[in-house]
Simulated assay, not measured.
Amino acid sequence: MANLPEHLKYTAAHAWVLDHADGTVSVGITDHAQETLGDLVFVELPAIGAHVAAEAQIAVVESVKSASDVYAPLSGTVTEINAAVMDNPELVNQDAYAAWLFKLRLDDPAELEQLLSAAAYLNTTT
């Protein structure tokens, strides 16, 4: 896996999390996930203001091969969605770590400690 930023946290379900250190996070899918899916053609994101529990289905990414659910890595409220990704799903294929999907205001920032480091995530994909 060539592209795995060390400063991010990860889930075994192939999501990445960027902690903004203010009780909010950005969430996207990993490079591994986008490679596995292939060329993305559709992204369905949650509504702003939606509340989600950790590990609940929150979004859908669809490629020419298949559709895949995206699961919330943490509990919280959606504060922002990346409309550019909805309009141009291929942005995720171009750079999965720049093309965040949504932002959450966390219910409990301590949940971040349960996420995987880059090295631990790498062990789940091999």
Rank of each mutant, 00 (worst) to 15 (best):
L37Y: 06
Q34F: 02
V43Y: 01
A59I: 12
A96S: 11
A83D: 15
V43T: 14
E44F: 06
K65E: 11
R105C: 04
L8Y: 12
E44S: 12
P46M: 07
F42M: 09
M1K: 12
G49W: 12
T124Q: 06
A72K: 08
A99I: 10
I29L: 01
A54V: 12
L4I: 15
M86C: 04
I81M: 05
V52K: 04
H7E: 13
V85S: 02
A98P: 10
P5W: 06
Y97M: 03
V70H: 05
G28R: 00
L37K: 02
N82V: 01
E55I: 02
V17G: 04
N82A: 02
H32I: 07
T79L: 11
A110D: 12
L101E: 05
T30G: 01
W16D: 00
N82R: 00
P109N: 05
A84G: 05
V17C: 04
D108K: 12
A33I: 11
H51S: 15
D19H: 10
L106R: 06
V60N: 08
I29D: 01
S117Y: 08
I58N: 09
D95C: 02
F42G: 03
A21F: 08
A83C: 01
V25K: 01
A54K: 15
A15Y: 05
E113I: 02
V70Y: 03
L40K: 02
E6S: 12
D69Q: 13
L8K: 06
A67S: 14
S66A: 15
S68A: 12
T79K: 11
N93E: 02
P73I: 05
Q94A: 07
E55L: 10
T36E: 14
V85F: 01
P89R: 04
V85D: 01
T11P: 15
W16T: 06
E90L: 00
E111N: 08
A98W: 14
H7N: 04
A98C: 02
W16A: 02
Q34G: 01
L115W: 13
G38R: 01
V60E: 09
L101M: 15
V92K: 00
E113C: 03
G38Y: 07
M86I: 15
K9C: 03
L106E: 09
Q34R: 08
M1I: 09
L122H: 13
T30E: 07
Y97P: 02
F42S: 09
I81R: 03
L101G: 00
P89H: 05
A120T: 02
D19Q: 08
M1P: 12
Q114D: 11
Y97E: 05
P73V: 07
Q57A: 13
L74P: 10
T30H: 07
G28T: 08
K103E: 07
A96K: 01
V78W: 05
D107C: 06
